[in-house]
Amino acid sequence: MEYLQAEKRLSGVIESMRFPLIYLVVIAHMVSFDTPTVTLSWNSEDIYTLISEMISHNLARLSVRCYFLISGYYLFKKLVEWNSSVYVGQLKKKIRTLLIPYVLWNLILVGVIFAKHYIFLKFGLSVINSEAEYATIRDNSWYQLLWGMPINFPLWYMRDLICMTLVAPLFYYGFKYLKHYGLILSVVFYLGVHNTGVTGFSSTAILFFGAGAYFAMYKQNLLLIMAPFKNISMVLALVLLLISTLMNGKTYHEYIVRAFILVGVVGVINLFDYLNNNERLRTTLAKLAPTSFFIYVAHEVYIINWLKGAWTRLPIYDFGWGKLIGYFMVPCLCVLVCIGLYYLIKVISPKLLALLTGGRMSRFTYKERI
């Protein structure tokens, strides 16, 4: 009975997590891929760098890891007793929920880049930025655009999740025979900052999807496992977050941030378990949850970049405080635009929205989580 109640509560916690985690994905893309060093001072530029790096290059990395964990957990809840017909059924569902949206949103971005470049040329507008984007399309193969990069780069998570789903039998038999030792090996491999070098099989995906698979296989509810570490996980996560931020740009940053991620994932789940006691907050986040996937796949189709570009043209951007204000405002505006588009498409063509989101819509009965 305790397990069943915990599973019901876990479902609510995960529903509450979806929207805030997607906001973290969006704000992560407010800065470049570079990781500058952090300087502690009262200078507004240094404060901006400290906060933006702490969130975008450290804290925000928890979001995708949580999604991998959840995805592995829910897939293997259906595969606790191995059954090839159940597995094939899951693969068929993933074509609709993962593969089709993945291909469509990469193709959409390719089409938008082509259209922008053509329009800029036709009307004699500056093509400096559009030329660089167009060159990316022109100079790369379709394999690179749709898989190796991918062109809509946040979708690397979906690409890796597709791969994890395809090799689900290996996780099943691996954990069946190695048991918890298989999980320990994955943790050691991850903390050692190793990688497979094979596209779609990142150590991040292997560890966190695999951890979700392991806990589901052995009927270990995530909340029941993590609850005893509620306080220590949050305190340790904050300490490691600060250390990893201060290590930004230095040799051992990746080692520290990966340790933070392991503890931070536990802290995030415990945090939302606590926040779910607030009924109003829980209801609000549950209402926003269906928009999460659309925000994730759509925000990099120029939406966030145009908003960032507009903010940089304001006089306030020349100051550190202006950059800091924009750092939080632009993602909020981006999310609002995406939500507006979500509901606009839902009104105009619910079937199109269902196709673009893999059926992740509140009005549809199918609620497969990413």
Rank of each mutant, 00 (worst) to 15 (best):
E2V: 02
E2L: 11
E2F: 05
E2H: 08
E2W: 03
E2Y: 03
Y3V: 02
Y3A: 07
Y3G: 00
Y3S: 07
Y3W: 03
Y3R: 11
Y3K: 13
L4K: 12
L4S: 10
Q5A: 11
Q5K: 13
Q5I: 01
Q5L: 11
A6W: 03
A6C: 03
A6D: 11
A6I: 01
A6K: 05
A6V: 00
A6Y: 01
E7F: 02
E7P: 06
E7W: 00
E7A: 12
E7Y: 01
E7Q: 14
E7V: 01
K8I: 03
K8Y: 01
R9N: 09
R9T: 09
R9K: 15
R9H: 09
L10F: 11
L10S: 09
L10Q: 12
L10E: 13
L10M: 13
S11P: 00
S11V: 00
G12K: 14
G12L: 11
G12I: 01
G12M: 08
G12V: 00
G12Y: 05
G12P: 01
V13W: 06
V13Y: 08
V13A: 09
V13G: 10
V13Q: 04
V13F: 07
V13T: 11
V13H: 08
V13K: 07
I14S: 05
I14H: 06
I14G: 01
E15I: 12
E15C: 09
E15Q: 14
S16K: 08
S16C: 14
S16L: 10
S16R: 10
S16N: 14
M17A: 13
R18W: 06
R18F: 02
F19M: 09
F19A: 10
F19K: 08
F19G: 08
F19I: 09
P20S: 08
P20W: 05
L21I: 06
L21D: 10
L21T: 02
L21A: 13
L21V: 07
L21P: 07
I22G: 07
I22E: 09
I22P: 03
Y23F: 15
Y23W: 15
Y23D: 04
Y23K: 00
L24T: 08
L24A: 09
V25C: 15
V25Y: 03
V25A: 12
V25G: 09
V25R: 02
V25F: 05
V26C: 05
V26P: 04
V26W: 02
V26M: 05
V26T: 06
V26F: 06
V26E: 05
V26K: 07
I27S: 07
I27Y: 03
I27M: 05
A28M: 12
A28R: 03
A28P: 00
A28Q: 11
A28H: 05
A28E: 09
A28W: 00
H29K: 01
H29G: 05
H29I: 00
H29S: 02
H29C: 06
H29T: 00
M30H: 04
M30K: 04
M30D: 04
M30T: 02
V31L: 15
V31Q: 13
V31N: 08
V31I: 14
S32W: 13
S32N: 12
S32F: 12
S32I: 01
S32G: 15
S32E: 14
F33A: 15
F33Q: 12
F33D: 15
